[in-house]
């Protein structure tokens, strides 16, 4: 069946992520891992103060209650990889699109930097290269850049790709060995580096995968589900605490 915006629902893999908020300690290891993996540049002080830093994975704190009865919760937010993404619909040049495996892709070399996708994204998880951030990196940083991920020039939008380059590698390997991708073979950097193992990643179309099982959990919810964006990042709500 044709989706409202003309993109086919995938029949093969449908990559998704489950984040257990009960296990998340808000340490920020996922952010760091993501930055290293995906060559995300640091920004200079002026840009930081103007809130232009890029963080594909962002641990967003939320404080509840008033002092002294306060509690801070943490919610790691990558791109939600919607099945019905509001950002891909509005792109004028096909620079962002939903690929057949459910990953919302961004073509850095085609993006014209109009930022309509950023304005359209309800989760505010698309980031813009306001300056040539790569140029401002210390030489040592660019020297150890991940060769699998392209560096972004100024003036384009970028976003979490579920470490798509890793999928490419896994697929290549599988093709060489003439087999299907094994469950658990394709992992993402934030998941690998989460010390409390709060992040799960896998194929939502595979009923035996851990993510598919967790997505059916009673605690499972999706951010802004009411908008009909059908995110593939699924959260597991915190259980009630009796401190």
């Amino acid at each position: 069946m044709e989706q409202p915006h003309g993109e086919k629902k995938s029949t093969g893999h449908r990559w998704g992520m489950v984040i257990d908020l009960d296990k998340c300690s808000g340490c920020g290891a996922c952010e760091v891992a993501c930055m290293v993996e995906n060559n995300i540049p640091f920004v200079e002080k002026g840009d930081y103060q103007r809130s232009r830093s890029i963080s594909w994975m962002k641990v967003v704190p939320e404080t509840e209650g008033t002092f002294p009865e306060v509690r801070t919760k943490f919610m790691p937010q990558p791109c939600m990889q919607c099945d019905n993404p509001p950002c891909t619909k509005v792109c004028p040049v096909h620079a962002t699109y939903l690929n057949p495996e459910g990953i919302v892709a961004q073509v850095y070399w085609r993006c014209i930097g109009c930022r309509l996708c950023m304005a359209a994204c309800p989760y505010t998880v698309k980031y813009f290269n306001w300056h040539n951030f790569q140029q401002a990196q210390p030489a040592a940083m660019t020297q150890y850049a991940n060769p699998d991920v392209s560096l972004r020039d100024k003036g384009v939008v970028e976003k979490c790709t579920f470490c798509h380059h890793r999928l490419m590698k896994v697929k290549d390997q599988a093709r060489l060995e003439n087999r299907e991708i094994r469950p658990g073979e394709y992992t993402v950097a934030c998941q690998d580096n989460c010390p409390s193992k709060a992040i799960f990643f896998g194929d939502l179309n595979d009923p035996h995968s851990e993510v598919a099982r967790l997505a059916d959990n009673l605690r499972a919810f999706r951010l802004m589900d009411e908008l009909g964006t059908q995110p593939k990042v699924i959260y597991l709500a915190e259980r009630k605490r009796h401190d």
């Binding site: 792109c91 004028p92 040049v93």
Partner: peptide
């Protein structure tokens, strides 16, 4: 307002 005015013609070539 475009971040990449040099790719302006993408609007014509790849427009959707």
């Amino acid at each position: 307002d475009l971040g990449r005015p040099d790719r302006m013609l993408n609007m014509i070539y790849y427009g959707r």
